[in-house]
Every structure is written in C-alpha cells, then in structure tokens.
C-alpha cells in the first residue's frame, strides 16, 4: 500500500494541500467562518459579563427591574452614577461568587476546579464552544478534500506517482495543520476581544491558557477529521462526501446521547463499546488539569483518528478512481 518513501510523499502532499488551500482562499474562508463565530461568542460572553456585573450592583436587574452600569446605557435605562468603564472577569472567577458557584457546580474534583478557576473565563468559554463547533466545521470543510479530486479525476495525475495511503494521509495531515492554525488564531482573537473589553484581563494568563487548550482542541478535532477523510476517500463527489460526513457526525452524537441515557439498560455494554469509538465520550477528560490526566485521552483520540483513516483506506485501496 505504501510507496518506497512514504514519509517524504506524505510531507509533499501535506505541504501542497496547505498551499493549495491558502491559494484557493479556502483556508481563509474557513478561518473567517471560525473567527466570525469566535468573535460572535466572545462578544456574547462580554455582554453576559457586563449584565452580570450590573446585576451584582443592582440585583433587581436580574428580575427585570432597575439596571445600572454599561448594559443599562445600551438599553436606555436608568444609569448608575460613575459606572466602571469596562466589565471585570473577577465576578466569575472569584471563589464564592454566585457565578463561580453556578459555573463550577458540576465539578466536584478539587484539583479540576482549582485548575479551571485559574483559567481566564473567556478561554473556558472559547474552548467550550469550540468543542461543539470544531466537528461541524471539519465536516463542512474537510470532507470534500479527496472526493473533489475523484469528481474532477485530478487524482489520476497523482495516483501514478504515489500510493493512495500516502496521498490520503498527506491530505489529512494538511487538513490537520489547517485545523491547528485556525484553532490557534481563533483563540487569539477571543483573547484580543477580551483584552479590549475587560478591565482586568492579563495577556500572559490568557496566552498560557491558550497554550493549554489549543493542543487539546486540535487533538479533539482529529478523530472527526479522520471520519471526514474516511467519507472523502470513499465518495465520488464533494457534496456526497459532505453529506456523509455530517451524517457520520450526527451518528456519533446520537450514539453518545443514547449511551448517556441507556448505559444502565441491557444495551449498555454494546453502547459502551460504540460510545468509546465516539470522540464525544472522551471530551470531559480534556478539562482535566494535568497533561498526565488528559494526555492518554489525547493519544487515544489520535489513535481513533488513525483508526477511522485506516478503515477508510481498507476500502480506498481497492476502489476505482
């Protein structure tokens, strides 16, 4: 299945894939889409923070009454005297604050709670939404990568020069590189918005947190990328690949939900196995504080990604191009 120099070929294909995506502005479109969503959720988060801060000073606001602070200004309501210019994230992170109690109520492990309390809330918010967004983004954008070449038959130019496995893995590596870059830039954008809007934002803490969550988000996306590649390898058009990818994503999500609901039933053992193969079931471990805790899960998800690609290759090596 492999040619004489698989690593070289995979690298060549990955580099060309990245350059081609940048040249086609596809990467920029993906980046713009992700950044737009990141900017939107960051703004939404800031709005929530402003309202929360105002409500702390004026509890009646929570019940729809008098509102003070910057949020009140926007609503044209009664404005409190000398409101702070910018909201503070301290109301969320301060231990004992009502928001802290609400946000971290489900986390019982003291080490995990301590770890999360030390992260800038904007980064937690960014990571939380990214866990939901990244799979969708991958299926929309990456599922077509090989299928499009099957459709145009452009694959025939390269299929005489390298093995199908090298080509598919190179394409996947290029997509993974794009995923990593886009995730990092979107995280930076969120931090930038936080720095602009918050009174007590610290860049150093934000960047440290980004370094913690960026690899986790990227690795979390890999199995979805593997599934997208599986679909792409074995379909003949970009549209079919995308639909198959989104269908697969829905299947993984439903499997995880079924397991959550019926794990104690007689179907529990079967669902447990299926759920193990779904990246969603490993998501919670990505919030654990140390690399020792979440590292094995990251390795497992990377293995799962290779598993999906491997299954795809079993069929891909035998199919007509």
């Amino acid at each position: 299945m492999f040619g004489p120099t698989p690593i070289r070929d995979i690298g060549l294909v990955a580099g060309f894939e990245l350059r081609e995506m940048l040249r086609s502005r596809k990467a920029l479109a993906i980046l713009a889409l992700y950044l737009l969503v990141a900017a939107f959720i960051s703004y939404a988060f800031m709005d929530f923070l402003e309202t929360a801060q105002a409500s702390l000073r004026n509890p009646a606001a929570l019940l729809g009454g008098d509102v003070r602070g910057p949020a009140a200004g926007r609503r044209g309501l009664v404005v409190a005297p000398s409101p702070p210019d910018k909201p503070s994230q301290g109301i969320l992170t301060a231990r004992g604050s009502p928001f802290n109690r609400v946000i971290f109520s489900r986390i019982t492990d003291p080490a995990s709670r301590d770890f999360l309390e030390r992260q800038p809330p904007i980064m937690l918010f960014f990571a939380y939404t990214s866990f939901a967004l990244i799979p969708l983004l991958i299926m929309i954008t990456a599922a077509e990568t090989l299928a499009q070449e099957h459709q145009s038959r452009g694959i025939r130019f390269v299929a005489m020069r390298t093995g199908r496995a090298e080509y598919a893995l190179g394409k996947g590596l290029g997509q993974a590189g794009l995923l990593g870059a886009v995730t990092f830039l979107a995280g930076l954008l969120s931090l930038g918005i936080a720095a602009w809007k918050l009174s007590d934002f610290e860049w150093s803490a934000g960047l440290r947190s980004l370094v913690v969550f960026w690899p986790r988000l990227t690795v979390f996306g890999l199995p979805f990328l593997g599934m997208a590649m599986l679909c792409s390898m074995n379909t003949g058009s970009a549209m079919v690949a995308r639909v198959a990818g989104l269908g697969g994503l829905a299947g993984l999500f439903v499997t995880h939900q079924l397991f959550q609901k019926y794990q104690e039933s007689s179907l529990g053992p079967v669902l447990r196995v299926l759920d193990f193969l779904a990246p969603y079931s490993h998501q919670d471990n990505f919030w654990l504080p140390s690399w020792q805790d979440c590292g094995p899960e990251m390795l497992l998800l990377a293995g799962l990604a290779f598993g999906y690609v491997g299954v795809g290759l079993l069929f891909y090596r035998r199919r007509d191009l």
């Binding site: 040619g3 350059r19 081609e20 086609s24 145009s152 038959r153 452009g154 005489m160 020069r161 390298t162």
Partner: peptide
C-alpha cells in the same frame, strides 16, 4: 500490475477528462 511503488516515474499517463487543481 501497475503499482506506484514499483512504477512511479517509469510509467506516466495523460488521462482523459481529468482536471489539475485550478488555483496553483
């Protein structure tokens, strides 16, 4: 039979109705 591991660079082809990537 053709195998890129054995034949690459030694066997080449002009396929019919195949398109190269348009943006490079």
């Amino acid at each position: 039979a053709f195998d890129p591991a054995r034949h690459r660079g030694r066997v080449t082809a002009l396929p019919q109705d195949s398109a190269l990537g348009r943006d490079m």
